[in-house]
Design a protein around this nucleic acid. Structure first.
Lengths: 187, 187
DNA sequence: TTCACTTTTTGCCAAATGGCAAACGGTTTC
DNA sequence: GAAACCGTTTGCCATTTGGCAAAAAGTGAA
Protein backbone atom coordinates (compact mmCIF):
# COMPACT_ATOMS: atom_id res chain seq x y z
CA UNK A 1 0.00 0.00 0.00
CA UNK A 2 2.79 2.35 0.91
CA UNK A 3 4.28 1.76 -2.53
CA UNK A 4 1.11 2.96 -4.20
CA UNK A 5 0.84 6.05 -2.03
CA UNK A 6 4.43 7.02 -2.73
CA UNK A 7 3.84 6.45 -6.39
CA UNK A 8 0.78 8.72 -6.37
CA UNK A 9 2.51 11.39 -4.33
CA UNK A 10 5.10 11.59 -7.08
CA UNK A 11 2.39 13.05 -9.31
CA UNK A 12 0.49 15.34 -6.94
CA UNK A 13 -0.42 16.10 -3.37
CA UNK A 14 -2.77 14.08 -1.17
CA UNK A 15 -3.70 14.67 2.45
CA UNK A 16 -4.14 11.97 5.07
CA UNK A 17 -7.92 11.53 4.77
CA UNK A 18 -7.53 11.20 1.02
CA UNK A 19 -4.79 8.64 1.47
CA UNK A 20 -6.97 6.70 3.87
CA UNK A 21 -9.83 6.75 1.41
CA UNK A 22 -7.62 5.42 -1.35
CA UNK A 23 -6.31 2.70 0.93
CA UNK A 24 -9.82 1.68 1.92
CA UNK A 25 -10.75 1.05 -1.72
CA UNK A 26 -7.78 -1.08 -2.67
CA UNK A 27 -8.03 -4.84 -2.51
CA UNK A 28 -4.80 -6.76 -2.45
CA UNK A 29 -5.04 -9.73 -4.78
CA UNK A 30 -2.64 -12.50 -5.58
CA UNK A 31 -2.40 -13.40 -9.23
CA UNK A 32 -0.62 -16.63 -10.06
CA UNK A 33 1.70 -16.96 -13.02
CA UNK A 34 0.01 -17.43 -16.42
CA UNK A 35 -3.38 -16.25 -15.14
CA UNK A 36 -5.18 -13.65 -17.22
CA UNK A 37 -5.90 -10.32 -15.59
CA UNK A 38 -7.82 -9.17 -18.65
CA UNK A 39 -9.08 -11.32 -21.49
CA UNK A 40 -9.27 -10.12 -25.07
CA UNK A 41 -12.77 -9.20 -26.14
CA UNK A 42 -13.95 -8.56 -22.60
CA UNK A 43 -14.24 -5.27 -20.83
CA UNK A 44 -11.45 -3.96 -18.71
CA UNK A 45 -12.74 -1.51 -16.18
CA UNK A 46 -10.67 -2.21 -13.11
CA UNK A 47 -7.45 -0.47 -12.22
CA UNK A 48 -4.53 -2.18 -10.55
CA UNK A 49 -1.22 -1.26 -9.06
CA UNK A 50 1.50 -3.87 -9.27
CA UNK A 51 3.10 -4.55 -5.92
CA UNK A 52 5.09 -7.51 -7.12
CA UNK A 53 5.52 -9.43 -10.33
CA UNK A 54 5.33 -8.80 -14.06
CA UNK A 55 2.49 -8.90 -16.55
CA UNK A 56 2.42 -8.64 -20.30
CA UNK A 57 0.02 -7.01 -22.71
CA UNK A 58 -0.56 -9.04 -25.86
CA UNK A 59 -2.53 -9.39 -29.01
CA UNK A 60 -2.58 -11.51 -32.14
CA UNK A 61 -1.47 -9.79 -35.32
CA UNK A 62 -3.09 -10.42 -38.69
CA UNK A 63 -0.77 -13.35 -39.35
CA UNK A 64 -2.04 -15.02 -36.21
CA UNK A 65 1.19 -14.54 -34.34
CA UNK A 66 0.99 -13.70 -30.68
CA UNK A 67 2.70 -10.36 -30.08
CA UNK A 68 3.79 -9.19 -26.66
CA UNK A 69 3.24 -5.49 -26.91
CA UNK A 70 4.49 -4.47 -23.54
CA UNK A 71 5.70 -5.63 -20.17
CA UNK A 72 4.48 -4.02 -16.98
CA UNK A 73 6.48 -4.52 -13.83
CA UNK A 74 6.52 -3.49 -10.20
CA UNK A 75 5.25 -0.11 -9.08
CA UNK A 76 3.23 0.57 -12.16
CA UNK A 77 -0.40 1.27 -12.68
CA UNK A 78 -2.35 -1.07 -14.91
CA UNK A 79 -5.38 0.68 -16.34
CA UNK A 80 -7.39 0.78 -19.51
CA UNK A 81 -6.08 3.51 -21.80
CA UNK A 82 -8.84 2.90 -24.31
CA UNK A 83 -12.47 2.93 -23.33
CA UNK A 84 -14.16 1.25 -20.43
CA UNK A 85 -17.19 0.43 -22.50
CA UNK A 86 -15.52 -1.27 -25.42
CA UNK A 87 -14.11 -4.78 -25.42
CA UNK A 88 -10.37 -4.89 -25.04
CA UNK A 89 -8.41 -5.58 -28.19
CA UNK A 90 -5.60 -6.97 -26.04
CA UNK A 91 -5.23 -9.34 -23.17
CA UNK A 92 -3.14 -9.02 -20.06
CA UNK A 93 -1.46 -12.00 -18.49
CA UNK A 94 0.64 -12.47 -15.38
CA UNK A 95 3.97 -13.91 -16.41
CA UNK A 96 5.24 -14.29 -12.88
CA UNK A 97 3.30 -14.69 -9.66
CA UNK A 98 1.92 -11.24 -8.89
CA UNK A 99 0.49 -9.27 -6.03
CA UNK A 100 -1.81 -6.50 -7.16
CA UNK A 101 -3.79 -3.73 -5.53
CA UNK A 102 -7.06 -3.77 -7.40
CA UNK A 103 -9.71 -1.05 -7.58
CA UNK A 104 -13.17 -1.70 -8.92
CA UNK A 105 -14.51 0.72 -11.46
CA UNK A 106 -17.03 2.10 -8.97
CA UNK A 107 -14.41 2.73 -6.35
CA UNK A 108 -12.03 4.28 -8.82
CA UNK A 109 -14.77 6.64 -10.00
CA UNK A 110 -15.62 7.48 -6.45
CA UNK A 111 -12.04 8.55 -5.90
CA UNK A 112 -12.36 10.70 -8.98
CA UNK A 113 -15.52 12.30 -7.62
CA UNK A 114 -14.28 12.74 -4.09
CA UNK A 115 -10.66 13.76 -4.29
CA UNK A 116 -10.04 17.11 -5.85
CA UNK A 117 -7.02 16.82 -8.08
CA UNK A 118 -7.40 13.07 -8.51
CA UNK A 119 -8.09 13.35 -12.22
CA UNK A 120 -5.05 15.56 -12.58
CA UNK A 121 -2.86 12.96 -10.93
CA UNK A 122 -4.25 10.15 -13.04
CA UNK A 123 -3.82 12.16 -16.19
CA UNK A 124 -0.21 12.88 -15.39
CA UNK A 125 0.40 9.20 -14.84
CA UNK A 126 -1.23 8.27 -18.12
CA UNK A 127 0.60 10.91 -20.03
CA UNK A 128 3.96 9.98 -18.66
CA UNK A 129 3.43 6.29 -19.29
CA UNK A 130 2.30 6.80 -22.84
CA UNK A 131 5.19 9.12 -23.63
CA UNK A 132 7.61 6.56 -22.27
CA UNK A 133 6.09 3.84 -24.38
CA UNK A 134 6.07 5.92 -27.53
CA UNK A 135 9.65 6.98 -27.06
CA UNK A 136 10.82 3.48 -26.37
CA UNK A 137 8.96 1.92 -29.27
CA UNK A 138 10.24 4.63 -31.60
CA UNK A 139 13.77 3.85 -30.60
CA UNK A 140 13.16 0.14 -31.14
CA UNK A 141 12.17 0.66 -34.75
CA UNK A 142 15.45 2.26 -35.70
CA UNK A 143 17.87 -0.12 -34.03
CA UNK A 144 19.18 -3.52 -35.05
CA UNK A 145 18.24 -6.66 -33.17
CA UNK A 146 21.23 -6.72 -30.84
CA UNK A 147 20.74 -3.12 -29.80
CA UNK A 148 17.05 -3.75 -29.24
CA UNK A 149 17.84 -6.59 -26.90
CA UNK A 150 20.29 -4.41 -25.01
CA UNK A 151 17.63 -1.76 -24.69
CA UNK A 152 15.28 -4.36 -23.31
CA UNK A 153 17.89 -5.44 -20.77
CA UNK A 154 18.33 -1.86 -19.63
CA UNK A 155 14.65 -1.23 -19.24
CA UNK A 156 13.73 -4.58 -17.70
CA UNK A 157 16.94 -5.85 -16.15
CA UNK A 158 15.23 -8.38 -13.95
CA UNK A 159 13.03 -9.87 -16.65
CA UNK A 160 15.53 -11.46 -19.00
CA UNK A 161 15.81 -14.71 -17.07
CA UNK A 162 12.39 -15.12 -15.63
CA UNK A 163 10.33 -14.72 -18.78
CA UNK A 164 10.02 -17.04 -21.79
CA UNK A 165 12.27 -16.10 -24.65
CA UNK A 166 9.38 -16.03 -27.06
CA UNK A 167 7.71 -13.19 -25.18
CA UNK A 168 10.81 -11.05 -25.39
CA UNK A 169 11.36 -11.94 -29.02
CA UNK A 170 7.91 -10.82 -30.10
CA UNK A 171 8.21 -7.67 -28.01
CA UNK A 172 11.41 -6.83 -29.88
CA UNK A 173 10.13 -7.93 -33.26
CA UNK A 174 12.72 -10.68 -33.67
CA UNK A 175 12.30 -14.40 -34.07
CA UNK A 176 12.93 -16.64 -31.16
CA UNK A 177 15.95 -18.30 -32.72
CA UNK A 178 17.57 -15.02 -33.69
CA UNK A 179 17.16 -13.77 -30.16
CA UNK A 180 18.66 -16.95 -28.81
CA UNK A 181 21.75 -16.39 -30.96
CA UNK A 182 21.97 -12.73 -30.01
CA UNK A 183 21.69 -13.53 -26.36
CA UNK A 184 24.64 -15.88 -26.58
CA UNK A 185 26.86 -12.99 -27.63
CA UNK A 186 25.43 -10.28 -25.42
CA UNK A 187 25.16 -11.63 -21.94
CA UNK B 1 -10.94 28.12 -37.22
CA UNK B 2 -14.02 26.06 -37.82
CA UNK B 3 -11.79 23.02 -38.22
CA UNK B 4 -10.36 23.50 -34.76
CA UNK B 5 -13.75 23.97 -33.15
CA UNK B 6 -15.11 20.84 -34.77
CA UNK B 7 -12.05 18.99 -33.66
CA UNK B 8 -12.49 20.13 -30.07
CA UNK B 9 -16.20 19.39 -30.07
CA UNK B 10 -15.31 15.82 -30.90
CA UNK B 11 -13.83 15.53 -27.43
CA UNK B 12 -16.29 17.49 -25.30
CA UNK B 13 -18.92 20.18 -25.22
CA UNK B 14 -18.34 23.90 -25.61
CA UNK B 15 -20.87 26.71 -25.62
CA UNK B 16 -20.77 29.74 -27.89
CA UNK B 17 -19.01 32.16 -25.49
CA UNK B 18 -16.36 29.52 -24.89
CA UNK B 19 -15.93 29.00 -28.61
CA UNK B 20 -15.57 32.73 -29.11
CA UNK B 21 -12.98 32.91 -26.38
CA UNK B 22 -10.97 30.15 -27.99
CA UNK B 23 -11.20 31.82 -31.36
CA UNK B 24 -10.04 35.13 -29.91
CA UNK B 25 -6.85 33.54 -28.63
CA UNK B 26 -5.80 31.77 -31.81
CA UNK B 27 -3.40 33.42 -34.20
CA UNK B 28 -3.26 32.09 -37.71
CA UNK B 29 0.32 31.80 -38.82
CA UNK B 30 1.86 30.74 -42.10
CA UNK B 31 4.85 28.48 -41.77
CA UNK B 32 6.91 27.96 -44.90
CA UNK B 33 8.38 24.62 -45.82
CA UNK B 34 11.57 23.63 -43.97
CA UNK B 35 11.07 26.23 -41.24
CA UNK B 36 11.41 25.05 -37.65
CA UNK B 37 8.38 25.36 -35.44
CA UNK B 38 10.36 24.14 -32.44
CA UNK B 39 14.12 23.87 -32.15
CA UNK B 40 15.86 21.16 -30.17
CA UNK B 41 17.15 22.35 -26.83
CA UNK B 42 14.74 25.24 -26.66
CA UNK B 43 11.48 25.40 -24.80
CA UNK B 44 8.25 24.52 -26.46
CA UNK B 45 5.37 26.15 -24.69
CA UNK B 46 3.03 27.10 -27.51
CA UNK B 47 0.22 24.96 -28.81
CA UNK B 48 -0.79 24.81 -32.44
CA UNK B 49 -3.53 23.33 -34.54
CA UNK B 50 -2.59 22.40 -38.08
CA UNK B 51 -4.99 23.83 -40.63
CA UNK B 52 -2.91 22.84 -43.61
CA UNK B 53 0.39 21.13 -44.23
CA UNK B 54 2.60 18.55 -42.58
CA UNK B 55 5.31 18.77 -39.96
CA UNK B 56 7.72 16.22 -38.63
CA UNK B 57 9.12 15.57 -35.18
CA UNK B 58 12.78 14.59 -35.19
CA UNK B 59 15.83 13.92 -33.14
CA UNK B 60 19.36 12.67 -33.57
CA UNK B 61 20.05 9.20 -32.26
CA UNK B 62 23.29 8.23 -30.56
CA UNK B 63 24.89 7.39 -33.91
CA UNK B 64 24.26 10.92 -35.08
CA UNK B 65 21.58 9.88 -37.53
CA UNK B 66 18.59 12.13 -37.93
CA UNK B 67 15.45 10.19 -37.07
CA UNK B 68 11.99 11.30 -38.06
CA UNK B 69 9.95 10.11 -35.14
CA UNK B 70 6.55 11.18 -36.31
CA UNK B 71 4.60 13.06 -38.93
CA UNK B 72 1.77 15.37 -37.96
CA UNK B 73 -0.71 16.36 -40.58
CA UNK B 74 -3.89 18.39 -41.01
CA UNK B 75 -6.41 18.70 -38.21
CA UNK B 76 -4.07 17.70 -35.46
CA UNK B 77 -2.96 19.44 -32.35
CA UNK B 78 0.74 20.10 -31.92
CA UNK B 79 1.59 20.45 -28.26
CA UNK B 80 4.36 19.61 -25.88
CA UNK B 81 3.71 16.22 -24.31
CA UNK B 82 6.75 16.56 -22.06
CA UNK B 83 7.27 19.55 -19.82
CA UNK B 84 6.94 23.20 -20.66
CA UNK B 85 9.90 24.09 -18.51
CA UNK B 86 12.43 21.69 -19.91
CA UNK B 87 14.26 22.08 -23.19
CA UNK B 88 12.82 19.96 -25.96
CA UNK B 89 14.75 16.82 -26.82
CA UNK B 90 13.25 16.97 -30.31
CA UNK B 91 12.69 19.52 -33.00
CA UNK B 92 9.67 20.13 -35.14
CA UNK B 93 9.96 21.19 -38.73
CA UNK B 94 7.44 22.08 -41.39
CA UNK B 95 7.97 19.77 -44.34
CA UNK B 96 5.38 21.44 -46.51
CA UNK B 97 4.07 24.97 -46.40
CA UNK B 98 1.76 25.11 -43.40
CA UNK B 99 -0.97 27.21 -41.95
CA UNK B 100 -1.22 26.92 -38.19
CA UNK B 101 -3.46 28.26 -35.47
CA UNK B 102 -1.06 29.16 -32.70
CA UNK B 103 -1.81 29.74 -29.02
CA UNK B 104 0.69 31.30 -26.68
CA UNK B 105 1.31 29.59 -23.41
CA UNK B 106 -0.44 32.37 -21.48
CA UNK B 107 -3.52 32.20 -23.65
CA UNK B 108 -3.63 28.44 -23.51
CA UNK B 109 -3.43 28.54 -19.73
CA UNK B 110 -6.13 31.16 -19.62
CA UNK B 111 -8.39 28.81 -21.53
CA UNK B 112 -7.58 26.15 -18.97
CA UNK B 113 -8.48 28.51 -16.11
CA UNK B 114 -11.59 29.92 -17.75
CA UNK B 115 -13.31 27.05 -19.49
CA UNK B 116 -14.67 24.36 -17.23
CA UNK B 117 -13.95 21.04 -18.82
CA UNK B 118 -11.10 22.38 -20.94
CA UNK B 119 -8.52 20.25 -19.18
CA UNK B 120 -10.72 17.24 -19.69
CA UNK B 121 -10.90 17.88 -23.42
CA UNK B 122 -7.18 18.41 -23.71
CA UNK B 123 -6.47 15.28 -21.74
CA UNK B 124 -8.70 13.22 -23.97
CA UNK B 125 -6.88 14.53 -27.00
CA UNK B 126 -3.49 13.75 -25.54
CA UNK B 127 -4.50 10.33 -24.47
CA UNK B 128 -5.97 9.40 -27.80
CA UNK B 129 -2.98 10.70 -29.70
CA UNK B 130 -0.50 8.88 -27.54
CA UNK B 131 -2.41 5.63 -27.75
CA UNK B 132 -2.50 5.90 -31.51
CA UNK B 133 1.20 6.50 -31.67
CA UNK B 134 2.03 3.66 -29.32
CA UNK B 135 -0.16 1.25 -31.23
CA UNK B 136 1.25 2.25 -34.57
CA UNK B 137 4.85 2.12 -33.47
CA UNK B 138 4.27 -1.26 -31.85
CA UNK B 139 2.95 -2.62 -35.08
CA UNK B 140 5.91 -1.22 -36.98
CA UNK B 141 8.39 -3.14 -34.86
CA UNK B 142 6.92 -6.49 -35.79
CA UNK B 143 6.55 -6.08 -39.52
CA UNK B 144 9.03 -6.34 -42.37
CA UNK B 145 10.08 -3.31 -44.35
CA UNK B 146 7.54 -3.68 -47.14
CA UNK B 147 4.65 -4.02 -44.73
CA UNK B 148 5.87 -1.02 -42.78
CA UNK B 149 5.86 1.08 -45.92
CA UNK B 150 2.34 -0.08 -46.73
CA UNK B 151 1.28 0.87 -43.23
CA UNK B 152 2.79 4.28 -43.76
CA UNK B 153 0.89 4.67 -47.01
CA UNK B 154 -2.36 3.81 -45.28
CA UNK B 155 -1.83 6.22 -42.45
CA UNK B 156 -0.41 9.09 -44.49
CA UNK B 157 -1.71 8.51 -48.02
CA UNK B 158 -0.99 12.04 -49.18
CA UNK B 159 2.52 12.23 -47.84
CA UNK B 160 4.35 9.64 -49.91
CA UNK B 161 5.03 11.93 -52.82
CA UNK B 162 5.45 15.28 -51.17
CA UNK B 163 8.01 14.38 -48.56
CA UNK B 164 11.68 13.45 -48.97
CA UNK B 165 12.31 9.73 -49.06
CA UNK B 166 14.87 9.99 -46.29
CA UNK B 167 12.27 11.25 -43.83
CA UNK B 168 10.01 8.31 -44.49
CA UNK B 169 12.92 5.87 -44.36
CA UNK B 170 14.05 6.98 -40.93
CA UNK B 171 10.47 6.98 -39.68
CA UNK B 172 10.15 3.37 -40.76
CA UNK B 173 13.59 2.37 -39.59
CA UNK B 174 14.83 1.44 -43.06
CA UNK B 175 17.67 2.83 -45.12
CA UNK B 176 16.92 5.19 -47.93
CA UNK B 177 18.08 2.82 -50.62
CA UNK B 178 16.09 -0.10 -49.28
CA UNK B 179 12.99 2.05 -49.22
CA UNK B 180 13.63 3.13 -52.77
CA UNK B 181 13.72 -0.51 -53.88
CA UNK B 182 10.63 -1.36 -51.87
CA UNK B 183 8.73 1.53 -53.32
CA UNK B 184 9.44 0.34 -56.83
CA UNK B 185 7.54 -2.87 -56.12
CA UNK B 186 4.75 -1.49 -54.00
CA UNK B 187 3.32 1.51 -55.73
C1' DT C 1 20.28 26.18 -71.94
C1' DT C 2 23.80 25.10 -68.85
C1' DC C 3 25.65 24.39 -64.44
C1' DA C 4 25.57 23.20 -59.73
C1' DC C 5 23.20 20.99 -56.30
C1' DT C 6 20.13 17.70 -54.11
C1' DT C 7 17.45 13.58 -54.08
C1' DT C 8 16.49 9.10 -55.77
C1' DT C 9 17.68 4.92 -57.99
C1' DT C 10 20.72 1.20 -59.01
C1' DG C 11 24.57 -2.22 -58.71
C1' DC C 12 27.46 -4.91 -56.11
C1' DC C 13 28.55 -7.39 -52.23
C1' DA C 14 28.49 -8.24 -47.13
C1' DA C 15 25.99 -8.80 -42.99
C1' DA C 16 21.86 -9.62 -40.47
C1' DT C 17 17.81 -12.01 -39.88
C1' DG C 18 14.20 -15.47 -40.94
C1' DG C 19 12.38 -20.28 -41.74
C1' DC C 20 12.54 -24.80 -40.74
C1' DA C 21 13.73 -28.78 -38.41
C1' DA C 22 16.55 -31.37 -35.43
C1' DA C 23 19.01 -31.64 -31.17
C1' DC C 24 19.54 -30.42 -26.54
C1' DG C 25 18.34 -29.53 -21.68
C1' DG C 26 15.40 -29.20 -17.93
C1' DT C 27 11.02 -30.50 -15.55
C1' DT C 28 7.12 -33.24 -14.53
C1' DT C 29 4.60 -37.52 -14.46
C1' DC C 30 4.11 -42.23 -14.12
C1' DG D 1 14.60 -44.40 -14.21
C1' DA D 2 11.88 -43.88 -18.51
C1' DA D 3 8.75 -41.25 -21.09
C1' DA D 4 6.52 -37.17 -22.35
C1' DC D 5 6.59 -32.38 -22.54
C1' DC D 6 8.17 -27.71 -23.05
C1' DG D 7 11.27 -24.13 -24.01
C1' DT D 8 15.87 -23.12 -25.89
C1' DT D 9 19.72 -23.69 -28.85
C1' DT D 10 21.88 -24.93 -33.06
C1' DG D 11 22.70 -25.99 -38.05
C1' DC D 12 21.72 -25.11 -42.63
C1' DC D 13 20.32 -22.29 -46.16
C1' DA D 14 17.26 -18.60 -48.30
C1' DT D 15 15.85 -13.99 -48.05
C1' DT D 16 16.02 -9.43 -46.59
C1' DT D 17 18.33 -5.47 -45.58
C1' DG D 18 22.51 -2.59 -45.05
C1' DG D 19 26.77 -0.16 -46.73
C1' DC D 20 28.97 2.09 -50.09
C1' DA D 21 29.52 4.36 -54.30
C1' DA D 22 28.23 5.60 -58.83
C1' DA D 23 24.67 6.80 -62.05
C1' DA D 24 20.38 8.92 -63.03
C1' DA D 25 16.75 12.06 -62.31
C1' DG D 26 14.95 16.16 -60.56
C1' DT D 27 15.36 21.20 -59.09
C1' DG D 28 16.63 25.78 -59.08
C1' DA D 29 19.62 29.62 -60.38
C1' DA D 30 22.36 32.20 -63.56
Amino acid sequence: MEELINYLLGFGNLNQPQIDLIASKATETAFPKDEYFVEAGKRFDRTAFILEGVLRICYYNNKGEEITKYFVDENRLLANPYNYHEPMPEYIQAITDCRLLVFSRQDWEELSNTIIGWDGIVNKIFRKALIEKTDRRSALVTEDATTRYKMFLEKFPTLANRVPLSYIASYLGITQSSLSRIRKNVR
